[in-house]
């Protein structure tokens, strides 16, 4: 499975013998379809986050002070660092696709490793410096709320939007990292190369979407008062 002899006598990688599924007319069709399918799935992901954005917009409109007060309690520093981390990971995963297309097996793996490291860093920062301190101070959503120094009675609602939004986003970071781990394992087997990089590209698309959502969550939650 891993290697086989070619006519020239050299060892060939598994991706070279890749053949498309029998119900497709060509590998090109199969690739296009996978990509279209992924884009449609990304559409559903955007609309999943639409609920969070809608709740944010509505309650910001109804309780502007509560949202301003709540936003002031977030630390822009960590939001900024996490944004940079995600942007860099987005870059490396785009590079990973390029490496697969060019058969640079080593750099393909390196780029995915960096991406996974960034994913871990993001979640680590999120929990260590944001979720855990905030939760223990009582800045919690809804009926969990236990923070004595709030000004506006709707501030628990702000925290509800904050935790739901960033929590569901963090869940997507983990899902994306899981996908990329799977890609990495298969990349180690030499499955991806110029003839077969569909999974690399679709996983990368998913990862970029996670980045896209954060690009909007960051200013909405941290910057706008």
């Amino acid at each position: 499975m891993t290697t086989m002899e070619t006519k020239t006598g050299g060892k060939s990688m598994p991706w070279e013998s890749y053949h498309h599924e029998p119900h497709w007319r060509s590998a090109s069709d199969e690739f296009d379809a996978a990509k279209l399918g992924m884009w449609l799935f990304l559409t559903t992901e955007v609309l999943l986050f639409a609920g969070i954005f809608c709740a944010y917009a509505i309650f910001r409109m109804l309780y502007p002070e509560a949202f301003a007060n709540g936003s002031a309690l977030l630390d822009v520093k960590f939001g900024f660092i996490n944004t940079v981390v995600l942007l860099v990971s987005s870059f490396t995963v785009a590079m990973a696709v390029r490496c697969a297309q060019l058969n640079q097996q080593f750099w393909l793996k390196v780029n995915i490793y960096i991406t996974l490291f960034c994913a871990a860093l993001f979640v680590f920062i999120k929990f260590t410096f944001e979720y855990i301190p905030k939760w223990s101070e009582g800045k919690r959503p809804g009926a969990f709320f236990d923070y004595p120094f709030a000004h506006h009675p709707a501030e628990p609602l702000w925290w509800a939007v904050y935790y739901c939004g960033t929590g569901i986003h963090a869940l997507h970071v983990l899902i994306g990292a899981g996908l990329l781990t799977w890609v990495l394992v298969r990349a180690h087997k030499g499955i991806y190369g110029p003839k077969n990089y569909t999974m690399v590209e679709t996983s990368a698309l998913y990862w970029h979407l996670v980045d896209l959502v954060w690009i909007f969550l960051f200013p909405l939650l941290y910057l706008i008062h």
Partner: peptide, 8 residues
């Protein structure tokens, strides 16, 4: 909402 009462 039902399990945790987040309030939205």
């Amino acid at each position: 909402e039902r399990l945790f009462r987040v309030g939205i």
